[in-house]
């Protein structure tokens, strides 16, 4: 029968050959399988990279294995690395400075900052969890409000901890709040954080980048790029948007 003959109708012979559609099903499957094989991610210094956890405008986060201990960690590396602009490097160094001041059970733990191949790296706790919105809507059935609010209060506590140390997150959104299997939230990604005690140079830095953040959760002053007006209230606005969506 036709299904066993193993050939599809030809669209463009050259294209068919390139993609293996001129072969019978078993050969074609082998071609597809070969093309899907993943090349190794390799290493950053001594860290063996396992997978890309996330990629944003500010940096790339890898799950990696720490040498010696074998412990899995998350490594954040600035986007563009050697090609990164001085502003991007300064912003990343500010993130390192910001997270170094924080110590809270609901903020991702930072193990240290390193410089490997002239590139600054942030080594953090690897969190296995779900983004807040997906956790709240697990399996298509929204969790009870009480449970959602219970976790949300812990997130607010974490953000308050940051505010009390002069750190404004500026990019609070569901994907930056991971909830682990014990129902504990972990706030991450202080890549856009601003320090209240910023130096004049750092303050300029925040003003030259235009809009930074995530529009769906950004406060009006942040959307309009009014950098001087962004303060703890901007984070509170984003928290409200996250909660509204979750409920």
């Amino acid at each position: 029968m036709a299904t066993e003959a193993g050939r599809s109708p030809s669209l463009d012979p050259r294209l068919d050959a390139l993609f293996g559609f001129d072969r019978d099903d078993e050969d074609w499957l082998r071609t597809v399988r070969d093309r899907r094989a993943e090349p190794s991610l390799g290493r950053v210094g001594p860290y063996e990279l396992i997978e890309v956890l996330g990629r944003g405008g500010q940096g790339v986060v890898y799950r990696a294995r720490q040498p010696g201990t074998g412990r899995e960690v998350a490594i954040k590396r600035i986007s563009a690395g050697l090609f990164a602009s001085p502003e991007s490097r300064a912003r990343f160094e500010r993130e390192i400075e910001a997270v170094a001041t924080l110590d809270h059970p609901n903020i991702v733990a930072v193990y240290g900052a390193e410089v490997i191949d002239d590139q600054p790296l942030l080594v953090m706790q690897a969190i296995a969890g779900l983004p807040f919105d997906r956790w709240a809507a697990l399996a298509g059935q929204r969790r009870p409000r009480r449970e959602i609010l219970g976790v949300f209060v812990l997130v607010c506590d974490a953000i308050q901890h940051a505010h009390q140390r002069g750190v404004i997150h500026r990019d609070i959104k569901p994907s930056n709040i991971l909830v682990d299997s014990h129902g504990r939230p972990h706030v991450l990604d202080f890549g856009l954080a601003r320090l209240e005690r910023a130096t004049p140079a750092a303050a300029t830095l925040t003003q030259t980048g235009g809009f930074l953040g995530t529009p769906a959760y950004a406060a009006p002053e942040q959307l309009r790029g009014l950098v001087r007006e962004i303060d703890v209230r901007s984070d509170v606005y984003a928290l409200g948007a996250v909660l509204y969506e979750a409920l």
Binding site: S40, L41, V44, L49, V60, Y62, A80, F83
Partner: peptide
């Protein structure tokens, strides 16, 4: 990224090239 890694670059270096 995959092309760069197949060329022997570490993933982090490949990211640099891709951004460029």
């Amino acid at each position: 990224g995959r092309y760069c890694r197949r060329r022997g670059l570490q993933a982090a270096d490949a990211e640099d090239v891709v951004q460029t």
